[in-house]
Amino acid sequence: MVLWTVVALAVVVAGAGTALYLWADGRLRSTEAFGEYPGRPKAGRGTDWLLIGSDSRATLTPEQRRELHVGSNEVRSTDTLMIVHEGDHGTTTVSLPRDSYVAIPGHGRGKINSAFALGGPKLLTRTVEQATGLRLDHFAEVDFLGFVDVVDALGGVRVRVPAGGLRDERSGAGFAAGCQEMDGVQALAYVRARYSDPEGDLGRVRRQRQLVSAVAEKAASPSVALDPWRALPFLSASLDAVTVDRRAGVRDLARLARGLRDAAGDERRAVTVPVGSEPRVPGAGDVVVWDRRRAGELFAALREDRPIPTSDLK
C-alpha cells in the first residue's frame, strides 16, 4: 500500500507550483531511519529506497479497528515492504514478502516484518541492508489509517479483481470477479488479504503491484491533478500518511513519480525477490525462504545498476 501512496503523492507534487511545493515540504514528517554499524554495505550505484506499510493500531479507535479488520494487537510491524531502485536503466521495484525468513541483528532469525516491531525503522533498515547487501539511501512509511484516508481523498480506485473473486474474513475482503470501485477501507482489505489466497503472502504482493497502476493513474488524471478542490485534500491526506527519513524531502518523492509509474506496468521492472521454499519453522510458523543464488544475482544487479537478470523475471 505504501508504494501507491508515495506514487500518488509524488504525481501531484510534481505538477504543483512553488508555493504549494514549499508548503508540502514543510509538512512532511520525518524520522531517524538509519544508523552506522560495523559491516554496513558500501554505497552502490543509483538510489535505493525502502518503502513500507506499517500495521500499527496504536492510533486507531475500537470502531476503526473493527471497520479495518486489524484486531487489537499493539505490536507494530510491517505489512508491506518494497525496495525501489532508481538508476540509469530506469526504476525497479522489488517486493520483499513480509514472511521472508532472514537474520535480524541481535535477535537471531525471524520474519523480516518483525524487525520493525523489535527495533523500529533503524533495525528494519539494517536487517534489509544485511539481507540484500544494498546500502539504502531513503525510507518511507505509510500506516493503515493514513492509507485509507489517502484513497478516500482520491475518490477511490477502480480495480479488476481476478476470476474467482476474493474473500478473506480476516482482512474483510469480499469481492466478486471483475472491475470494482473500491474506497479506502475496501482497498486496504483487498491488499491485505492472504489467508484465503493459496499463494499466501506472494499472492498479496501481486495485488499490491496491481494497485500501483490504478492509484498512480487516478492521481495523475486531470480530474484530480488539475482540480485544486480534489488535489489539495488528497495532498494533505498523503502528507499526513507518509513519514520519511531525515534526508528525504518532497522533491525526492516527486522524483520517484515517473519511474514508479513506468515500473508498475512493466513486469521486467516490478518483481518479487526470488523464493526458494516456504517451510514451516517452529516458533515462526509458515515462512518464505529466498533462493540464495537468484536473490544474490538480483541484488548484485541493483547494487551495480545493471539490468535485472532474466532468471529473476520468472
Results as ranks from 00 to 15, higher is better:
G71Q: 08
G53P: 04
L60S: 11
G90P: 06
R45H: 09
R76H: 14
D55H: 03
T78G: 11
A58T: 11
R66G: 12
A43N: 06
R98F: 04
L68G: 13
Y37F: 15
R76W: 08
E63L: 12
V70N: 11
E86M: 10
L60K: 06
L50S: 00
L50R: 02
G46Y: 00
E67P: 04
E36W: 07
K42H: 07
D79F: 14
E36N: 15
D79I: 02
D55N: 15
R29Q: 15
H69Y: 13
M82K: 02
E32H: 06
F34C: 01
T31F: 04
T31L: 04
G71V: 06
S54Y: 08
A33D: 10
T47S: 03
P97E: 13
P97V: 11
M82S: 05
E36T: 12
Q64E: 15
F34W: 09
R45V: 13
I83Y: 00
T31W: 09
E63F: 04
R27L: 14
S95T: 04
E63N: 13
Y37Q: 03
P41I: 08
P38S: 05
G71L: 03
G39P: 07
T92A: 01
H69L: 05
Y37D: 10
V84F: 01
R27Q: 14
V70P: 12
D88E: 15
D79K: 08
S95W: 00
T78S: 12
L68V: 12
T91N: 02
T91M: 05
D48C: 07
S30K: 14
L51V: 09
G46A: 03
V70I: 12
D48Y: 02
I52V: 15
A43D: 08
D79Q: 09
D88P: 10
E36G: 12
H69T: 11
D79W: 07
G53D: 10
Y37V: 03
D79A: 07
G44W: 00
V75W: 03
R66T: 15
